[in-house]
Design a protein around this nucleic acid. Structure first.
Lengths: 346, 346
DNA sequence: CTGAAAGCGCTAACAT
DNA sequence: ATGTTAGCGCTTTCAG
């Protein structure tokens, strides 16, 4: 018969089975080196025979570790985006890349990664979850300027690392890409191809990343000696990119080059430009940001500013691990360099 | 100063502070009714004053519950999909709907939901995670016929509920939509609009859901007295839909109606049909499956078979909770009715 | 190198 | 209605 015998085997049972003390079994399990090889083998057999698995609660009651960390995706409030939070999260390839990058460093260390989605109603839950000690720390993807979560977690003493420059200064490490440098590459490229009427479709301007990309755009346009560009605000979704592109075409029909603050919106925008009869890149050149999978699915394939998201997530994981191990150490931020990836759209 | 004082307050400290016994504090925390209201207030003040939060490890060591459950998304092996697992998961709105539906029933109960993505390398981790008792049970999204995970979890005694009919029979509850009935509605509609040359773009045929939709299609075509339809296999992604549509156009240029096994592929397919100069729905009528957000973002908006995914996920949560509470009870499956949603594409 | 024993923080009988 | 007490299963000194 399979299934749950009344209760899983305990350390004690394994010890009895092997004819040793609990301490010895514990040592074997935890890979302590000072155990007689002979005994170790006996114990290992006993473990296999009983199908023993350590009880997390008991263990972490004493070690105060759970060997798992949370990837928390936060959204401070519902500001009437067209697309609800969860749909957005599960529609943007970005999160998948973050997960992959973090897994890569955590997995070899035997540390579990779980994902926690924290829209406003989930907020109290998240706080409880973290304080109760389900995990040892959190990678926090928080993209809004006024998200109180980063500060709250820091105040709570939860080890945390942020995915980008926080809106308000917070005493925590973060990882980011050099946004302005990335945008600069995009605009320089547009200019080099002879585009003079530039515009940008931004992300939600209550996100630091969106702000950085917009101001980077304006700087770069000026640096190229071009007329001040136009901007319309989007929401980082494909649909939002379409809406923004329509507005852009109305407000600034002579546009011939556009920097779109992420690939998903660029995809939507390209569709709209084409439906309006503009050829890409001949009539309008388009450059996105992220180099996500969406960039390849675009028609035509999208030139874009590559963010090394996986690497960045891996670095977040490292920073978090050292923060957990050495709570005293002061926070650091790591900035990555972007890269321009040229395809057909510009 | 904020941050982690050496250690968080314990029950004992709260009890001392309030001048009562640990048991009383415990009762207040757990909402036991038989506590003098006066005392209760004293205790509550003490809790607030000390900033006490129960220690999960200690509690679940004795209760054997964690009040959290995992949403596990499983992929048995990498069968050379174009798109990697994590990207697929974070690109398809389906998962967001599942999460939302499950949250809705779990949240009021104070139960946490964490997401665990289990591609092949993560598999051993998942097993450990579950056996260690990080969670009380799992909602398992497993869509491949030969995924061993459902059976493994059942054998391990982990309470589990499946998101659709398992490939091999497994002693666990599951929730599904009546796939054939849904496809039937779609095909009937196509036939009613006078389409005679039908085709379908399927999901990966190693998924039960894809199989059901294909055989449902064939049955429905026959039932409508139409010539045997054509099918090409897709992979449930937007890009896969495009590739499949291209093949379809080559193999069966006279096609005038197509049932696409999910909305994401339908979106891709529509793009390809249009690029090939076919008008939708006049030259080719298209019906998708899911009624996900992608259906609304399509051009033209997609007629589709609606699956009540949120409700289904809620039901999964209920089934899991009763399975956790009454491990003895025998599994049940709940089948939901689909619904045809008519928009512009057919 | 191994065993004995204490204790992590909490809940749940049991006694009062 | 409240307090006392005995563990839950594990790690970790401390002896030996």
């Amino acid at each position: 018969m399979t299934g749950s015998d009344s209760r899983p085997p305990t350390l004690e049972q394994v010890a009895n089975y092997a004819g040793v003390s609990r301490a010895t079994v514990s040592r074997v399990i935890n890979g302590v080196q000072t155990v007689d090889p002979e005994l170790r083998r006996t114990v290992e057999r006993a473990i296999a025979a009983t199908g023993y698995v350590p009880n997390l609660a008991a263990r972490s009651l004493v070690t105060r570790r759970t060997d798992s960390i949370a990837l928390v995706v936060s959204e401070p409030e519902n500001r009437g985006y067209e697309t609800p939070f969860l749909t957005r999260m599960f529609t943007d390839p970005y999160l998948g890349r973050v997960t992959a990058g973090a897994q890569e460093v955590l997995r070899p260390l035997g540390i579990h990664l779980v994902i926690f989605l924290a829209d406003p109603p989930a907020r109290p839950h998240l706080l409880r979850y973290l304080r109760q000690g389900h995990v040892d720390g959190a990678l926090l993807i928080s993209s809004h300027v006024d998200d109180p979560l980063p500060a709250q977690l820091v105040d709570l003493g939860v080890p945390v690392v942020l995915s980008c420059r926080p809106g308000q200064p917070v005493n925590a490490s973060f990882v980011d890409v050099d946004q302005r440098a990335g945008v600069r590459m995009a605009v320089d490229r547009l200019a080099a191809r002879g585009r003079r009427c530039l515009a940008t479709i931004t992300g939600p301007l209550d996100m630091p990343a969106a702000q950085d990309r917009l101001s980077g755009f304006e700087e770069a346009v000026a640096a190229n000696g071009l007329p001040k560009g136009v901007h319309v605000e989007g929401d980082f979704t494909r649909g939002g990119g379409e809406r923004a592109a329509r507005r852009l075409l109305e407000e600034y029909p002579q546009v011939d080059g556009v920097f779109v603050a992420n690939d998903l919106m660029a995809d939507g925008a390209q569709r709209v430009f084409q439906e309006a009869g503009r050829r890409i890149p001949d009539d309008v050149a388009v450059i996105g940001f992220d180099d996500s999978t969406a960039a390849l699915e675009c028609h035509p394939p999208l030139s874009t500013v590559r963010q090394p998201v996986e690497e960045m997530a891996g670095e977040m994981a490292h920073l978090l691990l050292t923060r957990i191990r050495e709570p005293g150490r002061s926070p650091r931020s790591v900035i990555f360099n972007p890269e321009l990836v040229l395809r057909a759209s510009a």
